[in-house]
Every structure is written in C-alpha cells, then in structure tokens.
C-alpha cells in the first residue's frame, strides 16, 4: 500500500493535499482496499460550507456504505467529475484520478492538526 508523505491524513482514512487555500480530498489506499470495489461516490455537498469532521458525502462499495468526513473546515467547490462514470478510480488511483472533492479551505493552518504519513501508517498498523 502507498501513502505519499506530502499528504495529510485523518483517522477516518481521508487524505488531503493542500495547494494554497484550496485542497483536494480523497480516501486512502488502505480505505479503498478495506472497502473493496467502489461502485458509487455520492456527494451532493457542492457549494456547502462545512466544518471539520462533517459528512461531505458517501462512498459505496459492493458490500458496504461509508460516510466521508471532511478533514478540515471549508467550502466544497467541486466533485471529481470522473467518478460519475468511473467510481473504481478510487480503487485504482486513490491519490490521483480518484480524488473526490476540491475544497476552498477556511484556514490552511488547520492541516497542521491532521496526521502525517508516519502517524497515519502507525494508526493503521502498516
């Protein structure tokens, strides 16, 4: 499994990649593997201002449904349009084409409160 060191992580298995005051958010390689084949990414929070840990959508695998939690506060700008037709990109490329939302970050310094790659991998025991 792959956990890029430049990302920040949450204990709910999301990752976030900060680019100035915007950020990309998705789920980790560990999460996609645990879930199995992703068949639907249901996100209807575009345009919403959400706080940290609020639910921004749902990811559905063949056997399971999981809520998606926002790593830090912000406004959901965009849902990855590729996932409508190809939700399995979350499985095949979780940190690349499988990103889920683009976020306008309320306070970029908030990422400092998230997990580093080292802390996340320790959490999941890999």
């Amino acid at each position: 499994m792959n956990f890029p060191s430049e990302l920040n992580y949450t204990k709910e298995h999301e990752w976030i990649r900060l680019e100035g005051d915007t950020a990309y958010v998705g789920v980790t390689d560990f999460a996609q593997k645990e879930l199995g084949d992703i068949v639907y990414v249901d996100i209807t929070s575009t345009g919403n201002d959400l706080g940290a840990d609020e639910i921004f959508g749902t990811v559905e695998a063949v056997k399971t449904v999981s809520d998606l939690f926002l790593p830090i506060a912000g406004k959901v700008l965009e849902v990855n349009p590729l996932l409508e037709a190809k939700p399995d990109l979350v499985n095949s490329d979780p940190y690349g084409d499988g990103w889920m939302i683009k976020l306008k970050v309320a306070n970029p310094a908030d990422v400092a409160g998230l997990l580093s790659m080292e802390a996340y991998t320790k959490l999941i025991g890999v």
């Binding site: 199995g36 084949d37 068949v39 695998a61 063949v62 056997k63």
Partner: peptide, 11 residues
C-alpha cells in the same frame, strides 16, 4: 473469506 481479490471480479 469474504473476498480474495475483488468482489466484482469474483462475481
């Protein structure tokens, strides 16, 4: 065993 590789592939 719930899954060996992929639920959809196995199906």
């Amino acid at each position: 065993p719930v899954r060996y590789s992929s639920d959809i592939e196995e199906h």
